[in-house]
Write a protein that binds this DNA or RNA. Structure first.
Length: 347
DNA sequence: AAAACGTGGAT
DNA sequence: TATCCAAGTTT
């Protein structure tokens, strides 16, 4: 007979195997009443949305060093924050990060709300992140349901209902297991379990503290769960990017509109991205087409970008965009697709 | 409620 | 090379 999953067994496992992260307070220190800085927890959770721990590492370090508190961040320039986020993706997160910091600074005295309802009212904080901050930073018994927890629940209950339709049910499973004791450790424990043991492929069931409680283990179906709705295939779009360099070395860039793809980021002026882009140079010049195109894949389409370059005189005004002096230009401040286009000019 | 929204690493 | 995947939110 299968046993009910025991939160205490997972907590015991976590006490021995908790991963260390720069924003975490380990189980031992927590037992002594130490809690993590809500600002750092929040920052980590926003960065971790659909993003791996490895990918955010240097960004978390850079952000928290440069802006040690939420009030510091609230007073930052938009352009500095967007530039610092460049390369991490999902740029709405950066815009909302700044919005959220400013609301916390101006409306909450620089102190994060200590409730789920207070947190979810903030920009960029949805159901998962509100529960994560409430539990991890404030030790409230809120239930986190992220991709890890969904996978763990699908397997514990051998539930073959495809995601995302299964989400409400998985939430019920997860909520029923959330303990009143040590909810902050528990939230991190169940996500650590999903990240290190109950992994998407080749789960390490032998090492799992919940193996005896796992219906999928019993049924031998763990590796096939969770089921997911079939994905749509990505279409290919085409575009043109115009990389103009002034004779003094300055580059012609533009700030993209706040909404939509790469919103709020710097980028090369270009055509629309579609089936057959039309020429639309941002400045009069003799344009040369580079032999290779920049290829990049976004969430929902592939892009093949034709890169055109030109050298322009000092006194010529652009129709779109603005020149950035060579000294002030850093391709690291651009989103990845724009970095790729720039890199092609150097080979 | 389905679609938009990035990127890099693993397989 | 193609596909999947990673601590989701917004519209």
């Amino acid at each position: 007979m299968r046993e009910r999953p025991d939160p205490a067994a997972l907590l015991d496992w976590y006490d021995r195997h908790a991963r260390q992260m720069p924003w975490r307070v380990g189980p031992a220190a927590r037992a002594n009443g130490v809690r993590p800085d809500p600002y750092r927890v929040w920052m980590s959770e926003i960065m971790l949305q659909q993003t791996t721990v490895a990918a955010i590492k240097s960004y978390f370090e850079a952000f928290t060093t440069r802006w040690p508190s939420v009030s510091d961040l609230a007073q930052a320039e938009d352009a500095d924050v967007m530039a610092a986020w460049a390369g991490l993706g999902y740029y709405a997160r950066a815009r909302n990060l700044l919005k959220c910091a400013r609301v916390v600074h101006h409306d909450h005295g620089g102190v994060f709300p200590g409730t789920y309802d207070g947190l979810i009212a903030l920009p960029g904080i949805g159901p998962y992140t509100a529960a994560a901050i409430a539990s991890i930073a404030f030790d409230l018994p809120e239930t986190v349901l992220d991709g890890n927890v969904e996978r763990v629940m699908a397997r514990l209950y051998d539930d073959h209902t495809p995601l995302p339709a299964a989400k409400p049910v998985f939430m019920e499973y997860a909520a029923a297991l959330t303990p009143q004791e040590r909810p902050g450790c528990y939230a991190q424990a169940v996500m650590d379990l999903g990240a290190t043991i109950c992994t998407p492929r080749n789960p390490a069931c032998d090492l799992c503290p919940w193996r005896k409680s796992c219906a999928a283990w019993e049924a031998g179906t763990a590796k096939d769960l969770p089921k997911k709705a079939p994905k749509k295939r990505k279409p290919t779009r085409f575009g043109i990017a115009y990389l103009a360099r002034r004779v003094d070395g300055a580059w012609l860039l533009e700030q993209r509109p706040d909404s939509g793809l790469l919103g709020g980021m710097l980028g090369w002026p270009g055509s629309d991205w579609g089936d057959a882009p039309t020429e639309d140079p941002p400045i009069r010049a003799e344009w040369r087409t580079l032999p290779a195109e920049a290829r990049h894949t976004f969430t929902h389409f592939h892009l093949r970008l034709t890169v055109k370059t030109a050298l322009v005189p000092m006194d010529r005004a652009p129709a779109r965009g603005f020149f950035i002096e060579a000294d002030a230009f850093d391709p690291e401040n651009l989103p990845t697709v724009m970095r790729k286009a720039h890199a092609l000019t150097k080979s």
